[in-house]
Design a protein around this nucleic acid. Sequence first.
DNA 1: GAAAGTTTTTGGAAATTTTCCAAGGATGCT
DNA 2: AGCATCCTTGGAAAATTTCCAAAAACTTTC
Lengths: 141, 141
Amino acid sequence: MQQQADKIIQTLKAKGLRVTPQRFAVYEDLLARSDHPTAEQITNHLNQDGPTSSQATVYSSLQALREVGLIREVLLEEGVCRYDANIDPHHHFQCQSCGAIEDIAWDQLQDLDFKALRPGLQVTHYEITVHGGYCNRCRPE
Amino acid sequence: MQQQADKIIQTLKAKGLRVTPQRFAVYEDLLARSDHPTAEQITNHLNQDGPTSSQATVYSSLQALREVGLIREVLLEEGVCRYDANIDPHHHFQCQSCGAIEDIAWDQLQDLDFKALRPGLQVTHYEITVHGGYCNRCRPE
DNA sequence: GAAAGTTTTTGGAAATTTTCCAAGGATGCT
DNA sequence: AGCATCCTTGGAAAATTTCCAAAAACTTTC
């Protein structure tokens, strides 16, 4: 695990961010989970064994990490901004029963052809959101 | 335009909603524009020539219209919930310069094949969000 | 390794957006 | 028209995010 910590430190430094315990913790937490937590969920998780990061710091850290491209937002529900440390291109699936979000690997869906779009519209990035079905936990038997 | 108004009234009634001036106005406004406005933008637009709908009513109307499936949310920016009266399946394009959102007709992108997804995951709906390029207003030169 | 110069953290206040509430008003049915 | 129900309203409340100035921490420099 020490190697993992070193790698996080090197990553943060490489992006020009100072390595503080709070920022480290936010990024480490996001890297370790795949449930696309909200800022509040991250704050609670970090502080569950004694206070380590204030609310304002978590927001600030998330913003800093997002600005340098280490994490990104996932917006699938009204009024809920979730975060994801998986910055490789990928798609999302949301369970229609419990709302859980899981990743869909990029190569599980074929590449799209944008030739039919109106001229002059050059695509830099796209993403597919899939609704329906049930996640592992909600699967009916 | 009278026919358009009658049609809106019939549509609302058919969904079991009472036709009030405020609810009519919210739906009419959304039908008439394609810029995916926020609740605040709708409120301001409706009240620009004298007060017609309170803030709470606009939110309430939007919620009622969404519950019966006449409008839907569009979530592309953090903390911003936009609304769209186009409920036919379609995709969205967001201009990377000004953030404007425009629709992409469903048949301009090929249908996706979900065979590669894990078993048991039946897809009920999906949607593609395209970032990049420039909208008509931001087109360079 | 201490001082200097930044950047970051913090708690609390403030801003923003959305929801709640109870009262009065409007709508659709008979 | 009368009635039951649903809707609107202003204001308060809730929920989420940002701002602020002071204190603390990180990095660099000497």
